[in-house]
Amino acid sequence: MTSPPVIGFTELTGADFPLLHDWLNRRHLRRFFQKTPISLDEIAEKYDPRLSGDTATHCHLAWLDAPFGYLQCYRLSDFPDWAAMIGQEEGIGVDLYIGEPDLIGIGLGAAMLRAYLAQVAFPLFPEARTAWIAHEADNDAAQGCSRSVGFQRQGVFLESGLKTILYGLERETLS
């Protein structure tokens, strides 16, 4: 039996913006994550406040031999509009993507999400009992990834007019 890959995490820095720019403009992220082209200046405008602490979102890169994915987490109570949209008040939200297309579909997404929750997200928010993640209804691969980590379907809501599935995971059930 093969052991899971050892995935490390680093905090996102401004030096990583060119990498995000490259990833976010790749075709595989256009369908569900970054639907329109994004410039390097727009990346800086979006992510600089996160790096300076002006927003409560924590941003990280996932690494094997090189960075291959992006993840972020945040306390729901710090984003009341989002919390109201998904109908939850407590816990943490998590978002992620794999930037390298040749690493999609081989189980790294689930390994990355599982490791991130255990090593980064829940430790950042020790009071949190539940993690929440949402996927467009048509994004079967992302939903399968989240379910394989132990997330359970909790409901459906509309985000930007799109049917979106909400999944939750209790900290103690992290598989």
Rank of each mutant, 00 (worst) to 15 (best):
R114T: 12
D41P: 06
E11T: 10
E11A: 07
G161N: 03
L64E: 12
G14H: 03
L108S: 12
G107D: 04
I92F: 03
G109R: 08
Q119C: 01
A44Y: 02
C73E: 07
M112C: 12
N25A: 00
G109W: 00
D41F: 10
D16I: 03
P80S: 07
F17D: 14
W63N: 15
L12T: 15
Q143D: 07
H58R: 13
L162E: 05
L76C: 07
A56D: 14
V6A: 13
S175G: 04
G168E: 13
P123N: 05
D48R: 06
I106Q: 08
A110T: 02
L64P: 06
T10M: 13
L40R: 08
P4A: 11
S39L: 06
L51K: 02
E42I: 02
G14W: 05
P18F: 14
R26A: 14
Y74T: 13
A118T: 05
D138R: 12
A137P: 01
S175R: 14
I7K: 13
P67C: 01
Q34M: 14
E159P: 00
W132K: 02
L12K: 02
G14T: 05
Y116K: 10
F68D: 15
I43R: 05
D95A: 09
H21F: 08
N25K: 03
D95S: 09
A142C: 01
T173R: 03
L96H: 10
I133T: 03
D16Q: 06
A83V: 00
L174G: 09
G93I: 01
A121E: 01
T130E: 10
A118M: 06
F79Y: 10
A131M: 09
R31D: 13
S52F: 04
M85N: 13
L19Q: 15
W63T: 15
A131K: 10
G107W: 00
E42D: 14
S160Y: 03
A84G: 08
D41S: 11
L19E: 15
I133L: 12
Q72L: 10
L169C: 06
L24K: 11
D138L: 10
T164K: 06
D48M: 07
F68V: 13
E170Y: 06
A111I: 00
L40N: 14
W82D: 15
Q152K: 08
F32T: 02
V120G: 07
G161M: 09
L158E: 12
M112E: 12
A62V: 03
L169Y: 04
L174T: 12
G161R: 07
L103K: 12
Q152I: 03
D95H: 02
Y116A: 13
F32Q: 13
G144L: 04
R153G: 03
A115S: 15
R171D: 14
G168T: 04
R31G: 08
G53S: 05
I43V: 08
A111H: 12
Y74N: 11
F9I: 07
A121Q: 11
R147I: 07
S3A: 14
W132N: 09
L166W: 05
G150Q: 10
A66H: 11
